[in-house]
Simulated assay, not measured.
Amino acid sequence: MIVHDFSRTHSILNHFVAELRDVEIQKDRMRFRKNLERIGEILGYELSKTLDYCITDVNSPLGVKPTELLKQQPVLCTILRAGLPLHQGMMNFFDKAETTFVSAFRHHPNGEKEFEIVVEYLATPSLENKTLIISDPMLATGESLANVYEVLLSEGKPKKVHIVAAIGSKPGLDYISTKLPENTELWIASVDDILDNHKYIVPGLGDAGDLAFGKKLSK
């Protein structure tokens, strides 16, 4: 897996990540969602530089301008519900893309630390021979993302897979590198070293879904 870790570069992106983490700024849900959206836009733009383009003549009122335009629109996939703001940032740039929505959550059958990943809902076009971009704000253990990818394969094998995330853990990155195609590219704003006993990223930021949309009923 090819990792593009943007915390290693100096850019305004680091400000948006810092605000996501800040316990005081987190109290403003709208700003939290907006910062995830901004991160989606920046990472989507950087990712777009690697896609395939073709020369197309564009007619203006005064002439014709040959311009490099996308050869094929990608399919944007997001993992509900936390991924929606990040997905919106991607949609702001890839506004003609097809979309895939899938639900995946941690199910604690006995209310203990151990959990299983449950995938309950999938709405997608065919993925056969297309460029698939999966956005998920938090890449903790990587199990959710790996499970989602396996479910998506039932709708066709993509020719290329990209992952877009705000914050991930090194163990999570190591895990998905063994579960996704070798040429998968990860576009991530920041990588933290460890997971705690509950498999949450440290220092991370907490539960992205709850911070964006409010607390949910426990499963």
Results as ranks from 00 to 15, higher is better:
Leu139Met: 08
Leu132Phe: 13
Pro171Ala: 13
Ile167Lys: 03
His162Leu: 05
Asn147Gly: 02
Leu152Met: 01
Val119Arg: 08
Pro125Gln: 00
Thr131Cys: 11
Thr178Met: 10
Pro171Gly: 12
Asp136Trp: 03
Val119Glu: 09
Ser154Tyr: 00
Thr124Ile: 05
Leu122Met: 04
Lys160Thr: 12
Gly142Thr: 13
Tyr121Leu: 06
Glu128Cys: 14
Leu139Gln: 10
Asn110Asp: 09
Tyr149Ser: 10
Ile163Arg: 04
Asn110Arg: 13
Ser169Ala: 06
Lys160Asp: 04
Tyr175Phe: 14
Val151Lys: 11
Ser169Thr: 08
Ile176Ser: 06
Asn129Ile: 15
Ile176Pro: 09
Ala104Lys: 13
Ile163Pro: 00
Ala166Arg: 04
Asn147Ile: 08
Lys159Pro: 07
Ile117Lys: 09
Ser135Ala: 15
Ala146Val: 02
Ala104Asp: 10
Leu173Gly: 02
Pro137Gly: 10
Asp174Ser: 13
Ser103Trp: 04
Pro158Cys: 13
Ala104Cys: 15
Lys170Cys: 03
Ile134Thr: 05
Lys159Trp: 05
Leu145Tyr: 11
Lys113Phe: 00
Gly111Asp: 01
Thr131Lys: 07
Ala146His: 05
Ala166Gly: 14
Asn129Gln: 14
Lys160His: 11
Glu143Gln: 08
Pro171Cys: 08
Glu114Trp: 04
Ala165Trp: 12
Ser169Gln: 06
Glu112Trp: 00
Leu145Gly: 12
Met138Gln: 01
Gly156Pro: 08
Leu152Gly: 01
Ile117Glu: 06
Ser126Asn: 09
Gly156Arg: 00
Lys157Asn: 14
Glu128Asn: 07
Ala104Gly: 15
Glu150Lys: 08
Pro125Leu: 12
Lys130His: 07
Tyr149Asn: 06
Asp136Thr: 10
Gly142Asn: 10
Gly142Val: 07
Val161Cys: 01
Glu143Phe: 05
Lys157Glu: 15
His107Lys: 10
Glu128His: 15
Met138Cys: 06
Leu145Ala: 15
Ile134Lys: 02
His107Phe: 09
Tyr149Lys: 03
Ser169Leu: 04
Ser135Trp: 08
Asn147Trp: 00
Pro158Phe: 06
Phe101Gly: 12
Lys160Glu: 03
